[in-house]
Amino acid sequence: MEHAPDQEPSRARPPAKRVDAARNRDTILTAARAALAEAPHSSMAEIARRAGVGMATLYRNFPGRRELLEALYAEQVETVCAAAEDEAAAAASPGAAFTAWLGRFLAFSAGKHHIAQELLAQVDHDSPLFNDNRSRVLAAGRPLLAAAQQTHEVRAELSLEQILDMVIAITGIHGDARYTGPILRAALDGLRPANVDP
């Protein structure tokens, strides 16, 4: 009697509903990111309209505005953390990698400002939401700073916390990128040790 050949365990495909739910979530986040960038106080109804979903679908993915903002905030943190590896692989030197990443961090800080401000009205500043994500950003940036300091491209006495606080302070200056860009470049020039030529 012949035995049927052993079959490999089938890799179950995620149910169609799960795929649709993930797609809806991504669509909502994309729409919310664009809407809030244009008008920080955009309503949930406006976000649903932009995403092309009903309010029931919106609230099934994000039970409230706070949950939506937290997801956007975490998404931005993930982007800036991933950028650390990208810059380390692409830049010509450790100092260039760190400087490029700080530029990405500046864009991240400016982009999340209104989201963070709204969240701060709902959660405590010491909330794990902020502390855990700040820890992730610091963990992503420390290797870049350490490498740049080892090659004497960044002052050894500066900590990553100090440098990021400086960048965050620059995002608080009123003006567009044409105005704040030179300020950031001047600040980054100051990171170099005094005896190192640009």
Rank of each mutant, 00 (worst) to 15 (best):
L120M: 15
R104A: 13
R185D: 10
R25L: 00
D86Y: 00
P143I: 09
Q149D: 04
L69P: 01
G111I: 07
T79H: 09
A37G: 05
Q7L: 08
H114A: 15
A35N: 08
P182A: 10
H174T: 08
C81L: 09
Q117T: 10
A121T: 14
Q150P: 01
L58N: 05
A88K: 00
R185Q: 12
E87A: 00
Q122D: 12
R25N: 03
R104P: 01
H125D: 15
V80K: 02
C81T: 11
R33F: 05
V196G: 00
Q149G: 04
I168D: 13
E153I: 00
P40H: 05
L120E: 14
E70C: 15
G52M: 09
A31H: 09
G95Y: 00
D132K: 13
D6V: 14
E161L: 14
Q7H: 03
L145C: 04
L69C: 05
N131M: 14
A34Y: 00
P143K: 05
H114D: 15
T30N: 12
L36W: 03
A96V: 03
A21F: 11
F62Y: 14
V53K: 11
V53W: 09
R155F: 03
R134C: 10
F130H: 04
A194N: 07
V196E: 08
V19K: 12
E161Q: 11
I168F: 07
L188W: 08
G141Q: 04
